[in-house]
Nucleic acid binder design. Sequence first.
DNA 1: GGGCTATTTTGACATATATCAAGTCAAACG
DNA 2: CGTTTGACTTGATATATGTCAAAATAGCCC
Lengths: 245, 245
Amino acid sequence: MNVALNDINQTEITRLRVACSNCNLRELCLPVDLTPDEMARLEELSNQKRSYETGDYLYRSGDRFKSLHAIRSGSFKTRVLHEDGREQVTGFLMAGEIIGLEAISTDVHTCEALAMEDSEVCELPYARLAELSREIPSLQRHLYKIMSREIVRDQGIMLLLGSMRAEERLAAFLLNMSQRNAIHGMSATQLRLRMSRLEIGSYLGLKLETVSRAFSHFQEEGLIQVKARAVEILALPKLRAMVGK
Amino acid sequence: MNVALNDINQTEITRLRVACSNCNLRELCLPVDLTPDEMARLEELSNQKRSYETGDYLYRSGDRFKSLHAIRSGSFKTRVLHEDGREQVTGFLMAGEIIGLEAISTDVHTCEALAMEDSEVCELPYARLAELSREIPSLQRHLYKIMSREIVRDQGIMLLLGSMRAEERLAAFLLNMSQRNAIHGMSATQLRLRMSRLEIGSYLGLKLETVSRAFSHFQEEGLIQVKARAVEILALPKLRAMVGK
DNA sequence: GGGCTATTTTGACATATATCAAGTCAAACG
DNA sequence: CGTTTGACTTGATATATGTCAAAATAGCCC
């Protein structure tokens, strides 16, 4: 749930994402009125830093939940493993985004998160965040909002996944990647995908061949330029039109 | 998002639902330790009551969000209307359940809720609930949990919808209805569905004919006995097996 | 109860996606 | 530099679901 298809529905998308580079909670604070003192206390929470290499686990299913993590560099995917060993990708998390929210309720992670490339994260101990939010009502209210907005976002996904066809899903995915790139100051049209066709398919509920065909078809139509994982978006408006906006 | 497919994944399902008949927040309080005094204050919130006839709106898209509602009797559906007039059902809410959570973040309802039959609800003014939660830390924490558990639940839906086929979706739906029936002290096998095949299809992302065929097929297989909207579940374990558990 | 209407079921066919199987391409490695 | 390996693309076919149409059924009003 860390990643949302319906982001491309052009509602605000900044939300939980940390737009500034030093991995504090500025984005999270932005819409709430905090005093400089409160702000400082909030930023203190995110001072630690840790490195992960490609394939390393940030957390595994069953791990006790202690903290959220803000991704400073690199990217992660979250997944669940089914009994039969199949992998189901549930989200992609990029630099500047916060990961781990899904475990707040259970205190235990229900999926695993692993680095898709060498990455760095800052820890946000949840206990201290909650504690702080009890002292700062506007922060508390904001956390509520963040969480329930996640709900709305996912509801959006549900609606979309139920009714979207393969190419619409892929269009939504590309627009989502584009927007998240743009938020963090990178190109909105030049994408370097970190994930394989198989992973994209798993995330979108499609087979890798279907994903590949959709890429090819988009290229034929002049919507994008594909070169393996380097994708250039040529016709952003047309892609938007495909997903209904 | 008020309704979840993955409830049938046999995790706990009591959650937000109010199991006792007088529509207080007992279910909501249950897992938290409240003093009798705190409990009393909480129950005060749900004293009001209002009636709705079939087709009445509990709220509409765009309405200002003021309160949650606990359904004392009857049932509601939530939906969004697309530009072209198509209706998309996003949830079914039954007696004993709480509706409206999706609007907390935006302060405005993003979908509309209307009665599927004559119904009664109690209002839970959100401001007072939030205020109270500030004074009662364990309640605050519980609200966090409820909300983020909604997240997990919806994530479950996302996973399911992406990979489940028509009959699996219907099986999940039936099991969900069964469980919710059971929670509120009704039969787990004798279901009186309040919604049409069209609404079920809209909710599950299927066409009504597909829903109907799935019902028929289940009956042929001896899994259920169908008589219009009266459905008897004959082979609960087999249905469970269909959805992976 | 009889007729009316909406709902549900069923059938025939169309389309989208999955499946199976080659074949291509590119990075990694000796 | 050739080989290997994994990822990606493309093609042929199968299967699931959607679409269109008609018949059957149930609920409702008089």
